[in-house]
């Protein structure tokens, strides 16, 4: 594929998965509302919020770093997404994956928060650094079990390429990391709870409280950018997790294929790709549902409690997973 073809394909997958992220946020807000006995906001409410914020007539800037803060954040989300292959075996949804990309992706997960810290620092609002310090502390804590799980995977497959890891999981549920190394997956999913910042680890964004987290001073289109990033970043994390731990999605082995098993030789290639995308979305939805399920069931940890928790329970499970991978 040419470079322009690659860029176009990446833009397509970004477009699809940004919308997927928005709809995921909206539908999960609905589910949370139903759990609380409310009707809840419409599924398309995140779109309205983004449009509203971008349509604000005035905006204030505190300086270059303040402006770059949300740009970095968006770059972090896009960067995470762009180096993960979405559908195995489809050049259209392969993005810019290469060997060793799992390291780059792990860096990009951190990158957005660091950029945000710089921007929030220049805003001068005292509550922004509170959110940033909480966020970075929690992020450092959940990186440990997540890294242990990734190292366990790399040990098992002798590779740091997401494509290779997904490739090794093809051919049925028995090959998924979820089955081959359940301990690493448990550690990683607990880390995912912290990464998606729902309850009980939501003290970073602390919705609707005095310090709303790092974006205290962000408004108008800058806030719209952050909201867009939240959708992309959600989708990117989910795609990464499904790829690493839940078998990923393959253009040749999707849900639609399994329905029409006998027709396999007859279906065209594009149907395989669509099937892969749908497989990815279904798996992501189920994985995201885990965080919402935990989120509506548990109250919030304080920062030091969540750090202590991350460094103890999931880290030990991750270490056990590491040993399991070496056996």
């Amino acid at each position: 594929m040419t470079l322009w073809g690659q860029i176009g394909a990446a833009a397509l997958s970004i477009f699809i998965f940004t919308n997927f992220g928005f709809l995921l946020m909206g539908s999960m807000a609905q589910i949370r509302a139903r759990v609380q006995g409310r009707i809840g906001q419409p599924v398309y409410q995140p779109y309205i919020d983004v449009i509203k914020n971008n349509a604000r007539r005035t905006a204030i800037y505190h300086g270059v770093m303040f402006y770059l803060g949300s740009v970095f954040r968006l770059a972090g989300g896009l960067g995470t997404f762009l180096f993960i292959p979405v559908v195995l075996g489809s050049p259209l949804f392969a993005n810019f994956s290469f060997s060793g990309d799992v390291f780059l992706v792990m860096y990009f997960i951190f990158f957005g928060q660091l950029g945000m810290a710089l921007g929030a620092g220049q805003s001068g609002h005292p509550y922004s650094p509170i959110g940033v310090s909480r966020g970075l502390a929690q992020m450092t804590a959940f990186e440990l079990p997540f890294s242990l799980a990734v190292i366990a995977l790399a040990l098992k497959h002798h590779s740091l390429s997401i494509t290779t890891i997904v490739q090794a999981q093809q051919g049925g549920i028995a090959n998924w990391t979820m089955v081959t190394n359940p301990l690493a997956v448990i550690a990683a999913v607990i880390a995912f709870l912290g990464m998606s910042m729902h309850n009980p680890f939501s003290v970073v964004i602390a919705p609707q409280e005095i310090p709303i987290g790092p974006p205290t001073e962000y408004q108008s289109s800058l806030l719209g950018m952050l909201q867009t990033n939240r959708a992309i970043f959600n989708a990117a994390k989910l795609v990464l997790y499904v790829n690493l731990f839940f078998g990923g999605a393959s253009a040749a082995d999707g849900i639609i294929y399994s329905l029409f098993d006998a027709l396999l030789p007859m279906v065209p290639v594009w149907l395989g790709v669509i099937s892969g995308v749908i497989t990815m979305m279904v798996k992501s939805f189920l994985l995201y549902f885990v965080t919402v399920f935990v989120g509506v069931s548990f109250p919030r940890f304080r920062t030091e409690q969540s750090i202590r928790y991350f460094l103890l329970v999931p880290t030990l499970i991750g270490l056990a997973g590491l040993i399991l991978a070496r056996i």
Partner: peptide, 18 residues
């Protein structure tokens, strides 16, 4: 849940900027 302003897209926000 009795009044549920979220269904009209209304939500509280802690900072005047947003």
């Amino acid at each position: 849940s009795r009044y549920d302003m979220y269904r009209f897209g209304i939500q509280p926000r802690p900072t005047p900027r947003q």
